[in-house]
């Protein structure tokens, strides 16, 4: 009756989200008086997970799992869950997890809850809280089937360090053939990935022209943050569509979000309202972004941002 945690890796490396999944699963196992078991696929160093409290790790190395297909990952997780005799599987929301979680729920005959933001509020019936209406509301949902898959929202639970020593069991999995074929993968390197970023600096039409993003990029650099933009800015082509955060763009949940020259239309707020701290800088003191923000400055970005860069540099020294 253990808890199985899928700790995803990218080219063999874990990310903060992998540790967040482990932290959630370990706490859930302790609440349910059972053991937490982590599953890793093609990870360079599975033992890294023992820093987050998991004492048993199943490690799968398989060339055919280097390319992702929902059906093969769903089949793998179902087989390992059955082998372990577990009924509860914990994963964290990423591109690949969101892709194969539904297939897993069908293959394993499991209840699937996505966007989960807290530990279960009750175990019988098994009830979790999740985001609905673009985080304008939360809902309690009961997972009615015996098998359960929980997909935790990014940066909603946090990472908890807890050093233990773990046993690693190599498992040689037979993998069902992928029903899609990967032809080409393009991943931008060097830049901080917006979905993983702990801090995000975002700007809107208030910046007036694309060349004015130099100061936004500089602020992002001193903060070690990713850059983002509002929808109008990506629609005009000042910034790439990959940077658009909002309802139809990326939905992000960083620890710190700067909205600079962004009025804060409801569609924008829907994509950023899971951020822990929101800072707004806008010339219009009635801009709706101030309703969503924790800290605000009414002022001109061209005046405020350079000062902000200087003060943050001072702080870091």
């Amino acid at each position: 009756m253990s808890i199985l945690i899928y700790a995803e890796s990218w080219n063999g490396k874990f990310k903060k989200s992998s540790f967040e999944a482990v932290s959630y699963g370990v706490d859930l196992a302790s609440k349910m008086n059972t053991e937490a078991v982590a599953l890793v696929v093609n990870a360079d160093d599975a033992t890294e997970l023992q820093n987050y409290g998991v004492s048993k790790i199943i490690s799968v190395s398989n060339q055919s799992l280097k390319e992702f297909a929902s059906n093969s990952y769903a089949d793998l997780l179902k087989n390992i869950a059955d082998k372990e005799g577990t009924h509860t599987l914990v994963m964290l929301s990423t591109s690949n997890v969101n892709s194969f979680a539904p297939a897993l729920s069908i293959a394993w005959n499991a209840s699937l809850a996505t966007g989960v933001i807290a530990e279960p509020s009750a175990l019988n019936p098994f009830t979790v809280n999740r985001k609905v209406f673009s985080n304008k509301a939360h809902a309690d949902v009961v997972l009615s089937k015996e098998n359960k898959v929980l997909v935790i929202a990014q940066n909603s639970y946090g990472v908890k360090e807890n050093v233990v020593s773990a046993s690693v069991e190599e498992y040689s999995a037979s993998v069902v053939e992928a029903n899609v074929k990967s032809e080409k993968v393009e991943v931008s390197t060097g830049k901080i990935n917006l979905m993983d970023a702990e801090k995000v600096v975002s700007a809107g039409r208030g910046l007036k022209a694309p060349e004015n993003w130099t100061m936004i990029e500089e602020l992002a650099e001193v903060l070690n943050a990713a850059t983002a933009c509002s929808k109008p800015v990506s629609d005009i082509g000042w910034r790439s569509h990959n940077e658009h955060v909002g309802q139809t763009g990326k939905n992000i949940a960083p620890d710190l979000y700067f909205a600079i020259g962004i009025s804060g239309a409801i569609q924008h707020v829907a994509g950023i309202n899971s951020s822990k701290i929101i800072v707004a800088i806008n010339t219009d003191d009635e801009a709706p972004i101030f309703k969503a923000a924790d800290y605000g400055i009414v002022g001109d970005a061209f005046d405020v941002v350079p000062k902000l860069i200087a003060k943050i540099k001072e702080l870091k020294e």
């Binding site: 509301a137 939360h138 809902a139 309690d140 009615s144 101030f290 924790d294 400055i297 003060k311």
Partner: peptide, 25 residues
């Protein structure tokens, strides 16, 4: 079915935005 929605709630309202003067970054 696999899920049952049992209760909805609105998240707690955010505390009022703390305003800082533009002259005091």
């Amino acid at each position: 079915t696999m899920l049952e929605f049992t209760k909805f709630e609105k998240p707690e309202a955010k505390a009022e935005c703390k305003m800082v003067s533009a002259d005091n970054v």
